[in-house]
Amino acid sequence: MNIFRLVGDLSHLLAIIILLLKIWKTRSCAGISGKSQILFAIVYTSRYLDLPNFVSMYNTLMKIVFIAASYATVYLIYMKFKATYDHNHDTFRVEFLVLPSFVLALLINHDFTVLEVLWTFSIYMESVAILPQLFMVSKTGEAESITSHYLFALGSYRALYILNWIYRYTTEDHYDLIAIVAGIVQTVLYCDFFYLYITKVLKGKKLQLPA
């Protein structure tokens, strides 16, 4: 465990909490892509099937929190606050993300076993899971500040993981090429958003895309 990974994990945790609190406090999931949240639930489920493979208390606890929070979020969007779900703007075709991620996981993995292929699938899936949400923001042309904070925390997490991987490569000689490449793709997808966040949201303006 190094500082980059710890801050990355905390940023990830913060993102999930921000989203749950936003939906709970406003009693609304307006502006949130339910499709992205379903993809994240799929990501955590397929990745943390290795939960019985004990690494540390920290690891186990975080995995359980991520899985539970992702299902809670999906429940809030599709059940409890269904009436506020903006499905007309959540039109990204997720099969274009799920199927290629799965096929790629079958082709490029560390080991051709069920758990390993599912872990690899979750890594590929995670790298693009935010696309329905970003698509929704670009379609409506704006995002609430709280949604922007959520996206910033979620995007920062993988960027911090890249620093963690560089650190681990230099200090432990440990690296996982699948995670690294997917993590870079994931971070690059947020770049446009990061730019808007820094130039607009941090200056107190609403995140609005130029018409």
């Binding site: 990974r5 990830h12 493979n53 560390h110 758990l115 872990w119 440990h174 699948i178």
Partner: peptide
């Protein structure tokens, strides 16, 4: 080589 047991990250 990465194996399942080396997936020590989240």
């Amino acid at each position: 080589k990465s194996t399942l047991s080396s997936h020590d990250e989240l």
